[in-house]
């Protein structure tokens, strides 16, 4: 019983904060709400005994991705004071996509017959995960890490190429109105 109360609470947190992410006007707030969503998702993982996944989720997504998004917002958007406006122009399409995805997922969950009974699932520990990633599937793991490395180097190359040809003195003077206090 207490497990389902806990699930309800965490799930409600996840859904509500996700709603805030797309509805809040201020982009920085939206990015912080995204952090809440990701923490709540990590809570769901922890409740499903996937504690390693929960830890990695917080470490990488909350500590990494959402912070990166905040940085992206601050560096790329022009903002006056504390409000970074979010311009959402595709509301109806978004609602349509969300409802459609929910319908597909819900039907596939309901149609799956094995979910009726309680099935005992072995808890996956970090040890299991490590063994399966670095022993059983080591080739796939290394290929993925190589791919990520290529992506990182590619990103650096793209970012540097844009810098070429722009001399220091040609850079525009810093904008005065960036943060008005």
């Amino acid at each position: 019983m207490s497990a389902s109360i806990g699930f309800g609470f965490v799930a409600a947190c996840a859904v509500l904060s996700a709603l805030f992410v797309v509805r809040v006007k201020n982009l920085v707030h939206a990015a912080l709400w995204l952090g809440v969503t990701l923490i709540a998702t990590a809570g769901l993982y922890a409740m499903l005994d996937a504690s390693f996944l929960a830890g990695v989720q917080v470490l990488l997504y909350v500590g990494g991705v959402s912070v990166l998004m905040i940085f992206g917002v601050m560096i790329t958007r022009k903002h006056d004071g504390l409000v970074v406006e979010a311009e959402s122009t595709s509301g109806p399409r978004g609602v349509f996509a969300a409802v459609g995805l929910f319908a597909v997922l819900a039907t596939s969950i309901v149609m799956t017959p094995e979910l009726d009974g309680a099935v005992a699932v072995e808890t996956v520990t970090a040890r299991h995960l490590g063994r399966s990633l670095l022993v059983d599937h080591v080739l796939a793991f290394e290929v993925v890490s190589l791919l990520l490395l290529i992506a990182i180097i590619g990103a650096v190359v793209l970012a540097r190429r844009r810098d070429h040809g722009v001399e220091r003195k040609e850079l525009p003077a810093p904008r005065r109105e960036e943060v008005s206090s």
Binding site: L32, S51, F52, G55, V56, V58, G63, V67, A126
Partner: peptide
């Protein structure tokens, strides 16, 4: 079971209040 990972994950969260304080002060 994931103690060390937990410590690192919580440590990574510290960024958020620090940034929020800097941002919200205007």
């Amino acid at each position: 079971d994931i103690g060390v990972l937990f410590i690192l994950a919580i440590g990574a969260l510290m960024v958020i209040p620090t940034f929020a304080a800097g941002w919200a002060s205007n």
